[in-house]
């Protein structure tokens, strides 16, 4: 009795985060805000949906693969968001007018002053 209730709860949370993430990509004023919303869709929404199925169906061939997808998404979705935000900033996509503080600009200016200390880039 408790496991179906928990499965329903996690499914509701997953639908909420998935739908509001898509709404954020639609509504937010800025690339960086939209990356934030899309990353929430990929991590929290999908995590809750996958966990819901694991709770309801138990461990079988479907939910083992669901757990594999879960581990993979938790590792890769934040990395994809970070890489995309960095590429957007370095190609000069402007921030919204309502931005209060931009700390990465300071880091880039330091790099331009001292090109010897440019961070080693992998990948």
């Amino acid at each position: 009795m408790i496991l179906p209730a928990l499965a329903f709860f996690f499914l509701a949370v997953g639908i909420f985060f998935t739908f509001t993430g898509a709404l954020g990509v639609f509504r937010f004023p800025d690339v960086y805000n939209r990356i934030h919303a899309a990353t929430k869709t990929g991590t929290l929404g999908l995590l809750s949906i996958l966990v819901s199925g694991v709770l309801l169906l138990g461990l079988d061939t479907v939910t083992i693969k669901a757990l594999a997808i879960l581990v993979f998404l938790m590792l890769t979705t934040p990395v994809a968001g970070h890489v995309l935000a960095r590429a957007a900033y370095r190609t000069g996509v402007v921030l919204t007018d309502r931005t209060l503080r931009d700390e990465f600009r300071h880091v880039l200016e330091l790099e331009e002053e001292e090109p010897d200390h440019e961070e080693p880039e992998g990948g």
Binding site: T18, A22, V25, R34, T41
Partner: peptide, 18 residues
């Protein structure tokens, strides 16, 4: 901008996975 479209496609992939 181009990163906007990439973000939209990334979110589409997440929704289709869901």
């Amino acid at each position: 901008s181009v990163p906007d479209r990439v973000v939209a496609l990334e979110a589409v992939v997440a929704l289709v996975v869901a």
